[in-house]
């Protein structure tokens, strides 16, 4: 009896698994979900103009969308007046993904993201600021019941939290042209 039914239920199981796999491969972390949104504006610009670059090991985070969310959040927080990636900005904010912990299975996904935020003077490429930012977010069922969607929502939450914490650290610096060149630990890289 079991052998007679074997092809049918193996086929159904295969299609359910395939559906799960394909759904997972089509989910992308979005800019809108990773942007910090409405925040208290900084009292002074960190810099009038800065370039922004994101690198490192983003795992399943879409790096272009993360960079777009970062730029939008920087502007919304009033930390820069303008982001200029043409190559002429006097400062560069460089964010590197150092570690993104992604669980394989679970009812609720907890995502940990470690990044390094560095600000350079682009004229002599000297390091002005270096900050480690660690964020955690546990997603529930706000992404629905399918695992890959819940994973995406939890990842977006951890990325959004990482941006929020990074902006807080930048807000504490004040104005960049007041930061002495030897303020950052050059050995931190």
């Amino acid at each position: 009896m079991i052998s007679a039914r074997m092809p049918r239920y193996v086929l159904i199981a295969f299609f359910v698994s395939l559906l799960s796999l394909l759904a997972g491969c089509s989910t992308v972390t979005t800019k809108e979900a990773m942007s910090v949104g409405a925040v208290e504006k900084a009292q002074t610009y960190l810099a009038e103009t800065a370039a922004v670059s994101v690198g490192g090991e983003p795992r399943s985070i879409n790096i272009e969308n993360f960079e777009a969310a970062l730029v939008e959040s920087l502007l919304a927080a009033g930390l820069v007046r303008e982001v200029d990636n043409s190559g002429s900005a006097p400062y560069l904010l460089s964010v590197d993904f150092k570690n993104v912990d992604l669980p394989m299975f679970g009812g609720s996904f907890t995502i940990n993201i470690d990044t390094t935020w560095k600000v350079f003077d682009t004229r002599d490429r000297s390091l002005l600021i270096s900050e480690e930012v660690a964020s955690t977010y546990t997603g529930g069922f706000e992404g629905g019941v399918v695992g890959v969607n819940r994973m995406r929502v939890a990842t977006e939450g951890a990325a959004r939290e990482n941006i929020r914490l990074g902006l807080e650290k930048l807000r504490a610096v004040g104005k960049l042209d007041m930061v002495p060149k030897d303020a950052a630990d050059a050995g931190s890289r």
Partner: peptide, 22 residues
Amino acid sequence: AALLALLSGCATNNATGDVTPG
């Protein structure tokens, strides 16, 4: 199989490259 679909997470395929502005 349905439980596996509900509990599993799948990473997307990605290929990116970025040169710092300037």
